[in-house]
């Protein structure tokens, strides 16, 4: 995890042994979250509605009574900012884009998937890009889109010298000098959309 902020994790399941297992694995991969243990879809729903920041949801299929796919869809809609991981029977079929772990997977796979779940869905990512100031982000966006200093100055109603100063600061803060490198940084942090680059 990039920041030291305590993350929130909800474990939703009816199975006591399973809950205990997940908690153990979390401590194995070094995650000490603020933990919510939930047994019913109603509790899950309430937790999601009342959240003030994203929660990592680790949901066991056993809390859903019927129509798994539809129930999951509802959860996803309510909690679009929350990463979701489903534990399921290997016979259960769900949409491919859903992150999930089957009971019969081995230790290595399970650890890998859980680590991946936490590390690649960093909900604190936004604070990361605050390395740069708002204005620097504006400038970086235009640089990444391929605009020259002069064009940026005209577009943002500032002098070329100001643009140059901002660019110098951006490079110093990030340690990245070339336009190609800055473009990648901008894409990684969602400052620009990769499609925009192709159009230019």
């Amino acid at each position: 995890m990039k920041t030291n902020k305590i993350i929130k994790v909800a474990i939703a399941s009816n199975n006591y042994i399973y809950n205990l297992g997940i908690k153990t694995i979390l401590s194995v991969i070094g995650i000490k979250p603020e933990l919510f243990e939930i047994n019913t879809t109603k509790e899950l729903r309430n937790l999601i509605i009342e959240r003030d920041s994203p929660i990592y949801l680790i949901i066991n299929e056993d809390i859903f009574n019927s129509n798994l796919e539809q129930e999951l869809y509802k959860v996803k809609n309510l909690a679009s900012d929350c990463p979701l991981l489903l534990f399921k029977n290997n016979q259960t079929k769900i949409c491919h884009s859903m992150a999930c772990i089957s009971y019969d997977e081995n230790q290595r796979e399970i650890l890998r998937k859980l680590e991946d779940f936490f590390f690649s869905n960093d909900v604190n990512k936004k604070t990361e890009s605050s390395i740069l100031s708002e204005r620097e982000l504006d400038i970086l966006k235009e640089v990444a889109l391929g605009l020259s200093n002069k064009e940026i100055a005209e577009k943002l109603f500032i002098s070329i010298n100001t643009v140059i100063t901002h660019r110098k600061n951006i490079t110093e803060k990030l340690g990245i000098k070339t336009i190609a490198g800055l473009t990648i940084y901008a894409i990684l942090n969602g400052i620009i959309n990769p499609k925009q680059v192709n159009n230019n």
Partner: peptide, 14 residues
């Protein structure tokens, strides 16, 4: 460019 590549990996790629 090599230095940029290093920094992208060290600092920014998940």
């Amino acid at each position: 460019k090599l230095s940029d590549l290093k920094n992208l990996i060290i600092k920014f790629i998940p």
